[in-house]
Amino acid sequence: MNTTQLDIKSVFQQNAEFSSRGIPLPTENIDTDQIIPARFLKATSREGFGENLFRDWRYKNGDANSPNENFVLNNSSFSGKILVAGKNFGCGSSREHAAWALKDYGFEVIISSFFADIFKNNALNNFLLPIQLSPSFVGRLLEEIASDPTMDIGVDLEAQLVKFKAYSESFEINPYKKMCLQKGLDDIEYLLSIKDEIAAFEKDKNK
């Protein structure tokens, strides 16, 4: 397929496998208004949204100088590039800013037992890998991170497998999107490469 590289990087382009510590956020139905509240959508570029990621959970009374110690991103015991979240992650608004904010903050992978559709597409288009696993596996993963925050979680995109300690589970991914992540490819260049076919389709449709 005739495609090109984006500015954003896919961590899976160089490495088939990726491992990192995980940050647990078991809250369910995390909507994109929580990930990035609407009042921070006024920027006209893609950069810098990480600063306001989970803004209203991260800070007390919206004040960036008073972090909420109870929120996991402010807990120094936890770090890493994998967010492990409760079910129905990314529901609500279609704002891609949510994916930009997570990626900009440093996340490469989001694990949940269920994702909202539009968020999933937005994440994949930014090489942020959403991995859907069984509720029991995600539950165990959350428990293990809580008891050992230094534990590494392995993500093997080629084998479509997530591993930690003695546990592993496979995940589904659209083969086309998998290839995009592995090669750092972009849908738009592909679509541009078939523009004659699109024009022919239009001509036929308007008959």
Binding site: I118, D187, L191
Partner: peptide
């Protein structure tokens, strides 16, 4: 249906999207 900004760019550029049938 609603789309993200990368997809807005895709439609502006080509009038098409890559979709899986729901």
């Amino acid at each position: 249906f609603g789309i993200g900004t990368s997809e807005v760019e895709m439609v502006l550029a080509t009038q098409c999207l890559l979709q899986n049938k729901p």
